[in-house]
């Protein structure tokens, strides 16, 4: 299975080259070309022209967490579907019924979230 692993080495190369481009241009070459004269006024945070007040790291709305949780549930279930999709040709109707049961469970979860009004952005 030697050639099989070659493709993964390729991906490592993409990672290395992908890191080299920003590192090279932002940290190695960039400082030689760009000016650097920071002043206190320049370094204030932008708040539409008024003096920034307070810290921006405030607590944010709980709905972000709810959507993150929904994402975890549904995305993982979607990932379970991929191996099934590839093997479906061999599984036939048995695989179809099994997946239908899985999808119904998933749909019940969605209906529950819908009913609980989690899917609304208000």
């Amino acid at each position: 299975m030697q050639p099989y692993w070659n493709a993964y080495l390729f991906i490592v190369l993409f990672l290395v080259v992908g890191i080299l481009l920003p590192v090279g241009s932002l940290w190695l070459v960039g400082p030689l070309l760009r000016p650097k004269n920071p002043r206190p006024e320049k370094l204030t945070s932008y708040e539409s022209g008024v003096e920034p007040f307070g810290d921006a790291h405030v607590r944010y709305h709980v709905r972000y967490y709810l959507f993150a949780l929904l994402f975890v549930v549904f995305d993982v279930e979607t990932l379970f579907l991929y191996p099934w999709a590839v093997a479906y040709g061999k599984l036939g109707w048995f695989g179809f019924i099994e997946m239908l049961i899985f999808l119904v469970l998933l749909a019940i979860g969605l209906a529950y979230a819908w009913r609980k009004k989690v899917l609304e952005w208000n």
Binding site: G30, R34, P35, K36, N37, P38, L43, S45, D55, A56
Partner: peptide, 20 residues
């Protein structure tokens, strides 16, 4: 490329530089 790279004083510097 030749513009100044402004990092706000209040920013979390390492993460700010790393995010792009």
């Amino acid at each position: 490329f030749i513009k100044e790279d402004v990092v706000p004083a209040a920013a979390d510097r390492p993460l700010f530089l790393l995010a792009p």
